[in-house]
Structure formats: structure tokens, C-alpha cells
Amino acid sequence: MRRSDVLRQTRTRDRRGRCCGTRALMPDRSVRGAATDSARTLLRRLIEQHGPVLLLLRSGAATPICLPARDFHPADGDVLVTRLPWHTEFWMSEDNYMRFTRDHLTVDVRSEITEDAPTTSLEAIEQSRFVLRVRPLDATEAAAAAAAPPPRTGADRLR
């Protein structure tokens, strides 16, 4: 069974607080990445305005940029790190992927725009920018990442 097919379970309770079973939640997208509520809200707005989008962390960049999915032409070494809400793919260059191999990446939003912020990114219109919060994978996440198949690359996407 693929990791993405595994459903997380949560206990449900009746009105008196007694446990009455489990229910499936959203499929586990990835142990490597997530998005905050503010990032999910901004992604939804951008998708409503521009259609499908994706995030890309280019080589040497500190923050990801948001592009219309139709405008992205991955290089062979680009790596698909995770899928965020609403089928939003998060890609990065091979050197960044190697840099973050043992890390969990959380996509967040800052409402400030600085001079070094990429103006070609879709969220700049919203006076915001996507940023990454990085933390080491815990033991469970590291084991799941090690057991997962290798990530897709730009070379795979072109086939």
C-alpha cells in the first residue's frame, strides 16, 4: 500500500464523550511538508484567480515562488517534494532537495513584502509572500520518508 493511500484515523465521540469508533481523515500527503492555515487560505485565493498553481524553490533562493502550473517546465533535476492542499505541488531544485533531505518543510505566509521578495510570484499581488519553516524530521517521519519510493523529478514528469 502506498503511503498516500493510508488514511489517518481519529476517534469520534458521542454527545456524552464516549468513544464510538474511528473515522478517516484526509489522506496523508507527505511526512516531508505541510501548509499552515494562512498558506492554505492564500493558495485557495490564488487558485480561484489563476487556476492550478504550484510552489517552486529555485536553486539559491530562500523563499518559494508561486507560479501557474501551466507555466512550469521542470528541469530534469527538479524534485517534487510534496503535494499541498488542492493538489498544489511543491517542487524544488536538486541542490535544495539535498539540503532539506532530513527536514520537514512547512509553507507559511508573511504579509510583508521586502525589496528582495520575488515580484514574479503570484502572491506578490496579494502583498504577501510564501516562506518556509524548517524543522528536522522526527524518528517516525524519518522512517516513513526512508520507506517511501524516491520522489518524482522533472525527468519523470516529462515522460
Rank of each mutant, 00 (worst) to 15 (best):
A75L: 14
Q49G: 00
R70W: 06
P52S: 09
D14E: 12
R129N: 08
R135I: 11
T41W: 13
H104Q: 08
L122C: 04
T120L: 05
W86R: 10
C20V: 15
L84N: 00
A144C: 03
M26P: 06
F130G: 02
T114H: 13
R110S: 15
T101M: 09
L122Q: 08
T153D: 12
T101K: 10
T106E: 12
V79Y: 01
R13Q: 12
D76Q: 09
E126W: 04
R152K: 15
G154Y: 04
R13W: 07
G17C: 03
R157D: 14
A61Q: 06
A69G: 02
R2Q: 13
R18T: 09
A142Q: 14
H87K: 10
T153I: 06
D116L: 11
R133D: 06
F72P: 04
H50C: 07
N96T: 09
H87S: 15
R2G: 03
L80S: 05
R18S: 11
G77A: 15
Q49P: 01
T153P: 09
R102F: 07
M1T: 10
H50Q: 05
E126Q: 10
L67W: 13
R40K: 15
P64Q: 06
E112D: 14
D103M: 14
R133T: 12
A35N: 07
V31W: 08
P27G: 04
V53A: 03
A139Q: 11
P85E: 06
L25A: 10
R2M: 08
D14H: 10
F90T: 03
W86A: 07
E123C: 13
L54V: 02
P68M: 13
V79M: 01
E115A: 13
T10D: 01
R16S: 12
E141I: 00
R133F: 05
P118M: 04
V109I: 12
T41N: 14
L105S: 02
P68C: 15
A69W: 04
A146I: 00
L158F: 06
P68G: 02
T88C: 14
T10E: 12
G33M: 08
E94I: 06
E123Q: 09
L137F: 07
V131K: 03
V6A: 08
A62C: 00
F90S: 01
T22M: 11
A144L: 13
S121G: 00
R152M: 15
L137K: 08
R159W: 09
R58T: 04
V79E: 01
R16V: 02
L122P: 05
R15N: 11
L122R: 01
R83D: 09
R3S: 05
T22I: 14
V81H: 06
L46E: 03
S121H: 06
P68R: 15
E126C: 04
A35F: 05
R16F: 14
V134N: 00
A75W: 04
W86H: 09
A148C: 10
R3W: 08
R135F: 04
P27F: 10
P64V: 09
H50R: 11
R16M: 12
D28L: 14
T106V: 12
A143W: 12
I113H: 01
V53G: 04
A34Q: 02
R83S: 09
I113A: 05
Y97T: 03
A39E: 01
P64L: 11
V79R: 07
S121E: 07
G17Q: 02
R3Q: 14
G77H: 12
D71R: 15
L56D: 10
C20T: 15
R29M: 11
E48G: 08
V131F: 01
T153F: 10
